[in-house]
Structures are given as structure tokens and as C-alpha cells.
């Protein structure tokens, strides 16, 4: 597998205006195609906007809803990952991130960790996802961590231990903490996470944040691609819309894992045994 270009759509979705957002997606996808990208990733809830409140039920759709067909269509020659409100078969609402490839929806991740504190109220309006699954992406095996998912150390760890070379993190991160020092508190925290996960799990971390405002809250942008050696491959400006293009190179993943074989040496069995013992779960050895 050779290196590929990944595009990040650091865009500003309109809140509750799904058709307008679909047209916006079409335009960004065209730009990514022109830039030679094999994959474009949109931020969390890119088709609907983030602070939906009661709008969540109004804009929700099933994974096979014709509304999403334009994304499938657009994915014939480059992969597309975008966010939407999924209404499950049993009518639960989820914050979902789809991955479309060659005209089909091939993977959906439902946000597991729904923050319901401070300026967040996800848990009031949505149900949680219940799994972290890797899938084959344009740049190799990948896992999706939607915003708060990434703040839980176990999430990128589970993906890396399942063989992911890429963690995609579509976000709607509100900027806050304007203390002295020239950067937002949230920006500092996110960059710390991105670099730490990338370097110590030897994966590509693709952080996709949106910009614009919703009800007075600013999303700060600053999307970035961080390589398994900890270098920032590409970083978008803060607060402005930007199509960011970065390269994902599987050879670099291989080289870095040879040099720094943390994943190879990771004792998943000890993690599992420790957790099983603490939770009182039976642990059966599989031969």
C-alpha cells in the first residue's frame, strides 16, 4: 500500500439545515478530489450541526435513508466520512459518523461517550454507541473516535490493539479557556492528546474539528494530521474554514513500529485479565 492524501474539511455546518449542508459537502468533496485526496473527513455531525437539542429528532435518518444517497454517490472515486444523526431500527438516536467508499456506506461508528456536563448535553438527546470496531479505509485499517470518544484513553488504545493504523477523530470542539499564554485551553489539550496517542500507539491521528458558532459558542478548528513519530504532518488555522491536506504513509507506520515496537510488546492479555478480575467477569482462554 502506498501513501495517500487525506483531506480534512474544516467547515462550518448550518444548524439543522441538512439540505444546505449536503450541498456544502458536495463542494468540499469536489475540492478534495481536485487536491488529489483519496479520502475526505468531515467533522462531527457535519450534515446537521452540533447543538441540535430537540432538532436532533427532526434531522435524524436511518442509515439507508435516500437523504444520504448523495454521499454514497460522491464516494465512487474517493472515500467520504461525514457525521449525521442516525435513527436506529429500534428508533434510538445516535451521533454517528459514516464512512462511504466506492458508492456504499461501509462503516458507521456511533459515539460512545456522550458528554453531559459543562456546555455539553449529548446524553440528554442521544443514546450511546456500544462498540469500537476497526474497518478498512483508504489509508489502511482505521477506527473512528467521535470527539469525546478520543478523550477516553481506552478508545485509541482499543483501535491500535485491533490493528488500526489510523484513528479518525471527527469533532465539534468548542473553544474555551482564554487564559494568558496565547492559545485556548481546549486547543492545548487536543494537541497534547493527538500527539501522545499518535506517538505512543504508533498510529496516524486525524483530528477533524469544525469552525463557526452555534448559540454563542465558537468551534475553534485547528484540525491536524499527526504521524506515528509524533510529527505534525499538517495543521489547519484556528477559527477559519480550511481544506487541509496531509499525507498518510503506511511505510512510515511500519518503520516507526519497527523502531518503537510498543504495540507489538503490549500485553493485552494482562489488561484483559486485570479488568476481568476487577469486574468479576469470567475469562476463558481461547485456543
Amino acid at each position: 500500500m502506498s501513501a495517500i492524501r487525506v483531506a480534512i474539511a474544516q467547515c462550518s455546518p448550518a444548524l439543522g439545515a441538512v439540505k444546505r449542508n449536503l450541498e456544502m459537502h458536495r463542494q468540499w468533496i469536489a475540492r478534495a478530489r481536485d487536491a488529489g485526496a483519496r479520502l475526505i473527513v468531515f467533522p462531527e455531525l457535519s450534515l446537521t450541526g452540533y447543538y441540535l437539542k430537540d432538532l436532533a429528532a427532526d434531522v435524524a435518518c436511518a442509515v439507508d435513508d435516500p437523504l444520504l444517497a448523495p454521499l454514497a454517490e460522491a464516494s465512487r472515486d474517493l472515500d467520504v466520512s461525514a457525521g449525521f444523526v442516525e435513527r436506529s431500527r429500534d428508533a434510538k438516536l445516535h451521533i454517528a459518523q459514516g464512512y462511504w467508499s466506492k458508492g456504499k456506506l461501509v462503516h458507521v461508528h456511533r459515539k460512545v461517550y456522550l458528554p453531559t456536563y459543562g456546555i455539553f448535553d449529548d446524553g440528554r438527546y442521544f443514546g450511546p454507541g456500544d462498540r469500537f470496531e476497526t474497518f478498512p479505509s483508504a489509508g489502511g485499517s482505521a477506527g473512528i473516535a467521535i470527539c469525546e470518544d478520543l478523550w477516553h484513553v481506552s478508545v485509541p488504545y482499543l483501535y491500535a490493539s485491533a490493528g488500526a493504523a489510523i484513528v479518525l477523530c471527527p469533532s465539534a470542539s468548542p473553544g474555551r479557556g482564554v487564559a494568558e499564554g496565547g492559545d485556548l485551553g481546549t486547543a492545548e489539550s487536543c494537541r497534547l492528546m493527538d500527539r501522545f496517542y499518535a506517538q505512543y500507539l504508533t498510529v496516524y491521528l486525524v483530528y477533524v474539528n469544525r469552525v463557526g458558532h452555534e448559540d454563542g459558542i465558537a468551534f475553534w478548528g485547528g484540525s491536524e494530521v499527526v504521524a506515528p513519530d509524533g510529527t505534525v504532518v499538517a495543521r489547519a488555522p484556528e477559527f477559519d474554514e480550511h481544506l487541509l491536506v496531509g499525507e498518510i504513509d503506511p511505510d512510515l507506520v511500519a518503520r516507526e513500529r519497527a523502531r518503537n515496537p510498543l504495540l507489538r510488546d503490549e500485553r493485552d492479555d494482562l489488561v484483559l485479565r486485570g479488568l476481568a478480575a476487577r469486574l468479576g467477569l469470567p475469562l476463558e482462554r481461547r485456543d
Binding site: L15, G16, A17, Y51, D54, L55, H213, E214, D215
Partner: peptide, 11 residues
């Protein structure tokens, strides 16, 4: 419990 965002946009 009629909680819509103020920045509620139209298509």
C-alpha cells in the same frame, strides 16, 4: 421542554 437552539437555520 421545547428546547430548540436559537441559531436554528433553514435550508
Amino acid at each position: 421542554d421545547f428546547l430548540y437552539p436559537r441559531d436554528w437555520e433553514s435550508d
